[in-house]
């Protein structure tokens, strides 16, 4: 019984770390650009398919996966340049970027479906067959270890980037007020592009890791993940970096434990019911300190 719990907690940690990674990119865009980028789920799916594309051409994994992440980042940058930048220039109301990025998601999903087929695929990687690490009662497949190392490694790197570097300070200044940041000589527009790029790479990494974790990818994997990302960033407080990571981890644990001990059919209803309650009870998020305009 206890060993089952331990095993489930490890599963929850690895799933939660992927959710956290996804939510981190999602919240980064909201915090800095001030838009809800609903194409983040599409970019997540795209990352997984880009990896599949290169792996199927027999590129070694150490090369294929980073290149796939880079490709995803470039697509994210393109969405920023072609769509979000134009909307910023028009000073469009917040509804507009949401609808435009939904359009981008539909476009990406449909292209993936057309190019790779609608059925679910898996990465041609051999390390799924390999043995696993046994720690007491808990078995850790190497894939799962790799997933957690990559996810937490990326998150720690992002945290360091935002906290300690000049770039991070500039980004946080923009999050506070883009206009004030521009007055201080920060190249705001260029950092918007960079943020879109970075967020897309985080989405792409999350997509590859989910593909590794379940050994399945499909053109439609973006939508459920987007919903979870939304739940995670609202749990954590919109635009709050630490909150998004905590929200993602929390969602991973809540989901795995709900499936184990409650019911698997209502797994998704559980996370959304939770989201719903949190919004009513604490719209600023469980961990967040985002201030809402009260007037």
């Amino acid at each position: 019984m206890l060993s089952m719990l331990a095993q489930q907690l490890v599963n929850a940690l690895s799933l939660g770390s992927i959710y956290a990674l996804f939510a981190l990119g999602f919240t980064l865009v909201f915090g800095i650009l001030g838009v809800i980028n609903l194409s983040h789920g599409g970019l997540f799916m795209l990352g997984a398919y880009a990896a599949l594309f290169f792996l199927e051409r027999h590129w070694p994994a150490w090369l294929a996966l980073p290149v796939a992440v880079l490709v995803t980042g470039i697509i994210g940058l393109l969405i920023d340049l072609l769509v979000l930048k134009q909307l910023r220039r028009q000073r469009a109301p917040h509804l507009m970027p949401m609808i435009a990025t939904i359009g981008a998601t539909i476009l990406m999903t449909s292209l993936a479906q057309g190019l790779f087929g609608a059925e679910s695929r898996h990465f041609p990687l051999s390390f799924f067959d390999n043995a696993s690490l046994t720690l007491g009662a808990v078995t850790l497949p190497y894939a799962q270890v790799a997933i957690m190392v990559i996810a937490f490694g990326t998150m720690i790197t992002m945290g360091w980037l935002l906290k300690k570097t000049r770039l991070g300070i500039a980004l946080r200044a923009i999050a506070e007020s883009p206009r004030a940041a521009a007055l201080l000589g920060i190249p705001v527009e260029r950092l918007f592009h960079l943020t879109s790029f970075l967020a897309a790479t985080l989405g792409g990494i999350a997509g590859i890791l989910i593909g590794l974790s379940f050994n399945a990818i499909s053109p439609f994997m973006g939508q459920p993940m987007l919903h979870k990302g939304i739940a995670a960033i609202i749990l954590g407080g919109l635009g709050d970096i630490r909150g998004a990571v905590l929200g993602g981890l929390f969602l991973g644990f809540a989901e795995v434990l709900a499936v184990t001990y409650l019911s698997s059919e209502y797994r998704d209803a559980f996370s959304f019911g939770l989201l719903f309650l949190v919004l009513l009870w604490r719209p600023q998020g469980l961990f967040g300190a985002t201030h809402l305009r009260s007037a």
């Binding site: 809800i36 939304i230 059919e265 998704d268 209803a269 019911g273 989201l275 919004l279 009513l280």
Partner: peptide, 26 residues
């Protein structure tokens, strides 16, 4: 729900929609 505004309202209603779909499913 209508105490919320902007993106919070959009997200809450999106969440509600998913809950309805999953209830219909089960």
């Amino acid at each position: 729900v209508l105490r919320l505004s902007g993106v919070y309202l959009a997200m809450a209603t999106l969440g509600f929609g998913e809950v309805v779909r999953i209830i219909l499913l089960n």
